[in-house]
Design a protein around this nucleic acid. Structure first.
Lengths: 251, 251
DNA sequence: AGACGTTTAATTGTCTGACATTCCTTGGCA
DNA sequence: TGCCAAGGAATGTCAGACAATTAAACGTCT
């Protein structure tokens, strides 16, 4: 592993890149201990601070973990589904927030992905998954629920649907998409009438999952997508109208 | 933004976390300049090195970029689809490589996700997307192609299919899944007979996309998934047999 | 006045050396 | 044997210095 001191790129970035390649390609295996910071600084012929900055970059990606004390050091980290999942949510959230992604585009992507596991979920869901979905539906029908709590429950329900497919790789990919949509959903105020319709469609999803009818799950999701889009449209339209109305009508 | 010097967590991790929260929640907006390292070290009451380690963590996630010189500093970075995409591929690749994910599980997830954009692609694909797919199919039929090049072309074709859905959020999510599968696919040696069958199925996908028949695209993907799985199974079985055979037969 | 080079100041990148903190190992002692 | 203290190795943090870079401000010449 070599670096180029004359490259315009930061030395710490180059070092991080070199070590990252070694991890991704499998030359460094899980739980293997990297050389100590002092040894690395000798190998790369840089100071210890530079090595440390490189290691922090890798730690930020959960590729290594560090341990203090004797026989401590930096170890190649086994990337857990949970870590990958959390990173994915952060990235997706920032991506949606920063790139003026329209509600429709995000919504379309989210439901397209979710339908991808409709059939698998219908086939493999356990009683547990179904119970979770039913419980969230009951919660969503309670009148006093705040919009945030309603959205959180919505996420939990869809999460159960995704997990029901019994494929952790799929769960990792999808849960990121579903949860990253939450900030956008939180921007919508749900009237009692809206909630009743959503709960009804959630009920259809649960019924279809119970009956192990994948196509019905998919169809219900499709309808939910349509309803969510029109709902968002009307909320945004109403908000735009309030904006242009005389001052004093705004809160 | 405050940190706790008595927490067991590293100060640099706490600082990175605080700034990350500010970015994700929108309190820091795109292209906004963070205080200089010297100012941050005053605000948080830590040394400049500690601040730098925190900033490197954020840079590793493409959340900030730094610029040297007068009026330089750290700026909130607009996360591009490309950056997000590359990070996603790295994470997915490591995740699959480190967690003993079976070929079947990864394959199932990949095709389930890809089918999610079958209908959208059929509806929206441009002549360009179709041309890319056809070109890759021609390439795949060439006899001299190495296994690596064959797999790369495979990725390019599926990438075109995904992009054909015309939803950048979907592309970001899916391309990660498709490309992360490549190392697993690369482990398979494709015989001429296998390739012919794959090329045939790719042709069916392209035909269906050309006819704007989403269901046909989905069906062809389903068949491709089945074939890929049985192919992998036979390759792995043959390899296991070679393993247990007397030494000398292995390369 | 305008074009063009020079200086200057601000900022990140790197290095050095020191000390604090953590934690496993080792060895002594009851 | 069991417990406790010392040692040592590693990361975490700090302070201060210098190098490299860059854009703005300034001067000078035409």
């Amino acid at each position: 592993m070599k670096i180029d001191p004359n490259s315009p790129a930061d030395l710490s970035a180059q070092i991080a890149s070199a070590i990252r390649d070694a991890i991704v390609s499998g030359r460094l295996i899980v739980d293997e201990r990297l050389p100590s910071e002092a040894e690395l600084s000798e190998q790369f012929e840089v100071s210890r601070s530079t090595v440390r900055e490189a290691l922090k970059r890798l730690a930020a990606q959960s590729l290594i973990r560090t341990q203090r004390g004797a026989f401590g050091g930096a170890f190649v980290n086994r990337l857990s589904y949970e870590d990958a999942h959390n990173g994915h949510i952060t990235t997706s959230t920032v991506l949606l927030g920063m790139n003026n992604v329209s509600f429709d585009t995000a919504c379309e992507a989210r439901f397209a992905l979710e339908r991808a596991c409709a059939h698998l979920c219908a086939e493999r869901r356990t009683a547990d998954h179904l119970a979770t979905m039913r419980a969230e539906i009951v919660r969503q029908a309670q009148p006093g629920l705040s919009d945030e709590a309603f959205c959180a429950s919505d996420v939990a329900l869809h999460r159960a649907l995704v997990d029901g497919a019994g494929n952790p790789v799929l769960s990792y990919q999808l849960a990121g998409a579903v949860e990253a949509m939450q900030p956008l959903m939180n921007m919508i105020t749900f009237t009692a009438r809206d909630r009743a319709e959503i709960v009804r469609l959630h009920g259809r999803i649960a019924d279809a999952a119970e009956a192990r009818d994948g196509t019905a799950v998919s169809d219900a999701l499709q309808e939910l997508e349509g309803y969510t889009k029109t709902l968002a449209q009307s909320v945004f339209a109403a908000r735009a109208k309030a904006q242009s109305a005389p001052a004093g009508t705004a809160r």
